[in-house]
Design a binder for these strands. Structure first.
Lengths: 335, 335
DNA sequence: TTGTATGCGTTATCAA
DNA sequence: TTGATAACGCATACAA
């Protein structure tokens, strides 16, 4: 006489279905699946058989509620254009995946409800990393107040957060010194120190080198994209007493400035920041600064994980080194 | 006489805490917060007051389980380097956010457990989009079998999936015709038709144009990165009877090939695909094909949403047009 | 208009 | 080694 067996249905099986089919309690099924407690071999066999037959997959929804955790991390960035954020996100995802956590992304790019979006993300993750230039300190504090660990990237610390940044001032200083050593006398910085900590840090380095060399500390407030670089440089290069070197906030700005110089038929030294792919292919090739983007993301994920797991309670503040990529655009290297 | 009021605690308040403080039932709190049923003004006031005082935020975990949905979408891509995937992801995230859904990302880049990772992602979302070159058809079928809607991007359809692709063959055909009209006679395609549907489609277009012009249909199997392009082109350009035009699978390959040609001091026409930033800055500027990346992502999110909401049951298959960006690298345009 | 009670799918505690 | 059963935090039929 055949046993009456529930047919495999289209609706997902629950742990109760499995329990019933294996003639055990739901608790035992859970124990088998998670290895949380010893189970008799024979019992385990029955359970595994039932699981396979019913194609049972534990509901993440149920698991999450019972464990009261999402097993997911968030990451908030202003934009994804350019390789910088992209690479960081990739490094972050990779490390998170290794540790069994999913990652939720959120781009704040000119979104009016950015604050709301970030807060709402906070409800869906066990921890999150926030890039500079995304939301106000006030919002960061609110997120911290929800109780989840927060890691800040390239942004000044807020109480209760871990911080990881890449080095700015020293590299900018060296870059400027290099320019000066090539005989450039009138160097101006294209960027807006008020716009971000990065921009401020780089200006600080440039400024310091200029001061030490007893040069005028010139700065041209400028947006962070190619168009801003092009426009600003066009104006600058047509003014009397035009600069012979431009230290740009990033590669996009620098590339835009190169276009301007090219159009005006002017020979001016130009440097960028980030080492985007286009920097290598521009002619002359762009001198720039490379950041360990991948590592930045991976470290952020690791830091978050430590706090989520409770393995660390004190906060950290790490600064990652950057690397000068001297190429032809800064003059003196046979462009 | 003061009412006894529960102090605001550090542990998150639940809907029961709010109900108690407002002297109503949890159901009423839910109704106020979600506007699912009319509530008396006075009652609503009390509830909102309690919500504010307790800083109550509904637990996503509880909501998700009760509603039996994640309110989240997934997206799986092979990599994020290069602007292509990045822009698509951005378009996707933007559209998803507009519709109140979070997005979970998953990169399969040389990950051995890619299949497992994708399946596990399937448990955490209400629907997902999969790029070509990520997992096998078998895995796609398994995901479809879980019951969640699946949208495939730049990849041949699998039963039960929506498909959105960008046009390949026609653009490749036009690109090749253009090259031929410039007098190039020996044009070879750098790419691997077996590696992806994109590579195959582009080769089909090149092949067709060559055939119609009664030229030899030459192809050099080649990886999809800069290094592969450089290596392949170096070999090709040093062989007897070398090509005078290279149609490359993408911009990275083309840029690598340009480096090779430059090193060898050879003048050869080169075209790419994707219009990465470096394409504009290379000298000569790279002729390439632009895809509506942002739109691709947005459409995918929209398609997913329709199926998740049950607004559409029949499957779609859309092909988005691409645009030729004729610049200098294809010769005849005063490079 | 509001409250009661149950379901959602797990995990985990406490007995047995 | 195993089974009841109570959380977990909300939504929602069903009553009142």
């Amino acid at each position: 006489m055949k046993a009456v067996v529930k047919p495999v249905s289209e609706v997902p099986a629950t742990i109760y279905d499995v329990a019933q089919r294996a003639n055990v309690s739901p608790a035992t099924v859970s124990r088998v699946l998670n290895g949380t407690q010893p189970v008799a071999p024979a019992t385990e066999q029955r359970v595994r058989k039932a699981v396979a037959e019913l194609r049972f997959r534990p509901s993440r929804l149920g698991v999450a509620l019972a464990e009261r955790k999402h097993a997911a991390n968030g990451i908030v960035f202003p934009d994804l254009s350019g390789p910088f954020y992209t690479e960081v996100v990739l490094g972050y995802e990779e490390m998170a995946a290794e540790r069994g956590r999913s990652v939720l992304i959120l781009s704040t790019r000119d979104r009016e409800d950015a604050a709301q979006a970030v807060l709402s993300l906070a409800d869906r993750v066990d921890g999150m990393v926030l890039f500079g230039r995304t939301v106000s300190d006030e919002v960061v504090r609110e997120v911290v107040a929800t109780g989840i660990p927060v890691v800040l990237l390239n942004r000044p610390a807020v109480a209760g957060t871990d911080v990881i940044t890449t080095e700015n001032e020293r590299s900018a200083y060296e870059l400027t010194e290099h320019l000066l050593s090539h005989g450039h006398r009138r160097v101006v910085y294209l960027g807006d120190p008020n716009a971000s900590a990065d921009a401020a840090g780089r200006w600080a380095g440039v400024s310091k080198a200029l001061k030490e060399a007893k040069r005028r500390r010139l700065i041209a407030p400028c947006g962070a994209d190619e168009n801003a670089g092009y426009t600003t440089a066009t104006t600058l290069l047509q003014a009397p007493n035009r600069p012979d070197a431009l230290v740009c906030f990033n590669d996009e700005v620098a590339l835009g400035a190169m276009l301007a110089a090219e159009e005006l038929g002017l020979d001016v030294a130009i440097t960028g920041w980030d080492d985007v792919m286009a920097a290598r292919f521009a002619r002359p090739a762009l001198t720039t600064v490379r950041q360990p983007m991948r590592e930045l993301g991976a470290l952020a994920a690791a830091a978050l994980d430590e706090r989520i797991a409770g393995a660390r309670t004190e906060l950290i503040h790490r600064v990652l080194p950057t690397e000068l990529m001297i190429r032809n655009s800064c003059g003196g290297h046979s462009a």
